[in-house]
Design a protein around this nucleic acid. Structure first.
Lengths: 203, 203, 203, 203
DNA sequence: TATGAATGAGATTTCATTCAT
DNA sequence: AATGAATGAAATCTCATTCAT
């Protein structure tokens, strides 16, 4: 389907993770192949053994790192039975824990920053990540409405609201947190934001 | 040929707006001075008459474009009397309309993308823009709690949730909308998101 | 004879003297028209009213400033009668005093620095300045030999030795003196150097 | 095509010697990196592998080429025993032969031309080269006075006179000789100049 | 005449990519 | 496979010169 293939060796993955960190931090253009090589403890030439160009490295990286994560969350809830309120909380928090642990927190920032430079990747991301997570959340809300936990709301729209915070918080964590003197943690923000979405603020 | 027009006063702003569009679209590093010059209908050299370097242009631009907008919203609500629910909606929508009209929609994306390259600007933005808008929203929520419109919620936190959506939507508008086939408008998203925050989704 | 014509107004001379100072200090390439204009208290455009290009300004400057000085020294000794030893001393010292007073100390450095960039000027300088001063000095030595003051020496060669010091000291004064911590004055150096040339150091 | 030769060790010196020739001939500002690269048979980029900037190349060049030469002359006379008159002649001529052979004839001109642009290098040159050579010459004169070969003269001053000619002749050789139609050779000039300094011209 | 904003050719420097080792 | 010296196209920036005012 795509020309970006998986690779089994250690080297390419190390290069990819080095590239991810730097692309997220500095953006695609400002990241030098030399920096990636140094961070991955290889030489510049070695990067070119595994990736034919900087663009190819970027694209491969996004595809390879993103695709496996997507189904993880889907699988997580497939088997779940019980309160949709709890599930909503769990899914949101779990999503964060998972991508944080895999070092992928920066991907949303990266996609948004480089959207116009890599339209095909952005499209892929919108359809295969954003829409699928939205669908997961919407399904929870639908189920909750069916079982009487939630009132009648537009599930897609509510899902978007929740997602928008998840994405925003991941970008805040990467880009703004260090300039924002208030000791807040993303996990807390997510929980409290779900609270508000669930309960509203009106009396 | 026909380019030799002396317009000392208009040039700097024209260059700045051209730069803004390109920086937002492509990022700082990927934007070429030549592109900025072309878009502003001047020669490369002219850019350097008004801005000593690309970095200086970037910084000046962010400061000059952002500062005047900040107090606008503050002034807007200073005189307001009436329902805080309505005010919350109005402020959110008005914020969007104002920055959209001034062509500044891209600033949040830009700040987040270039945060580590321009830490002083990022800090300035966090303190002078994010925190001030948060304070405005928090004050509305506090007033609404006082006058009995809202239940007892953490006003700062609720403000953050609303703000996170405002910012996320502005980035979505700039970067992802064109890849997201659903004809949604930011204005609608904002209104509906405020609805959810106000009413919650629980029955 | 040359295309570099004299000008009567004040402006051109002011520009020329400003240019001289800067060319001597920084060299031709490193001197900016803007700096010359600023030092002469005019605008960049004004420089181009009087001189068609930077090269033309340089050439005009050298010719106009040098030519009048050359005959001055020649005239000075034409009428002299008396000891050639004293005359030799007087001529050397007088030469320095004159060019110092006219602010032309830097010309030799300038010619030597820019020799290959302006071959015609260099040739002119070698023939019209160096050779003529050499001839003046050689004539004094010849006269001194004739009247028994000096022993039989090669007059041209002896003139060269004296001249080499005069030129070297003028360059030292301009370029090295400030880095040479010894409070020496060019006038003293010249006198003492003439002494040595006249008396030798052998017992 | 045939340029891809890896010569990590030879390159820096080749670039430095190419730079020396051009800096001497045209001055620092007028010398283009491209010219240096071409003359050293490398690409522009290669120059920047070894030297971080044009200024750095200039400074490194002056320091690296000058330092080794300084002690050479000092060593040369350390062991000498015999007539100081002969030694004086030998040292002067030998100095010329040595720097001529190493292609460093142009350094004095370069230092004097660029003195104000590179004050630290100029200071270094004055102290580590000019003053040391002066000291060498002064010591010879002192020794000659002690052993009765020379009359009582100021040794420092006499050294300066000799040195001024050495330096002047090296600049003349580089800049003016080709415009000075008289077939003189620097070696002859130096010998004859020492003659005059030793014997004086007075009867 | 005088000005200085505007131009654009050309300089310095960077860096993705190539390829001899 | 791995390296990093070498390349050269392209970027940033400079500045002599032009020309509308």
């Amino acid at each position: 389907m795509h020309k970006w293939k998986r690779r089994k060796d250690e080297r390419p993955l190390e290069i990819m993770m080095a590239a991810l960190d730097l692309f997220v931090q500095k953006g695609f253009s400002a990241t030098k192949i030399d920096d990636i090589a140094k961070r991955a403890n290889v030489s510049k030439g070695t990067v070119y053994i595994y990736y034919s160009s900087k663009e190819n490295l970027f694209k491969t990286m996004v595809y390879e790192l993103m695709v496996p994560k997507i189904s993880e969350v889907e699988d997580y809830i497939a088997t779940y039975k019980g309160s949709q309120i709890k599930l909503l909380r769990m899914v949101a928090v779990q999503w964060w824990v998972t991508i944080k642990a895999s070092g992928l927190t920066g991907i949303p920032k990266l996609i948004i920053s480089e959207a116009d430079k890599f339209p095909d990747i952005t499209k892929f991301y919108v359809i295969e990540v954003i829409h699928r997570i939205q669908a997961i959340l919407a399904n929870i809300i639908k189920a909750g409405t069916t079982n009487g936990e939630f009132r009648e709301v537009n599930p897609i729209l509510s899902a978007r609201v929740i997602l928008s915070s998840l994405v925003y918080f991941s970008m805040w964590d990467i880009s703004l947190k260090k300039y924002d003197q208030n000791g807040l943690k993303v996990e807390d923000l997510i929980e409290q934001q779900i609270d508000i979405v669930i309960n509203g603020i009106i009396r």
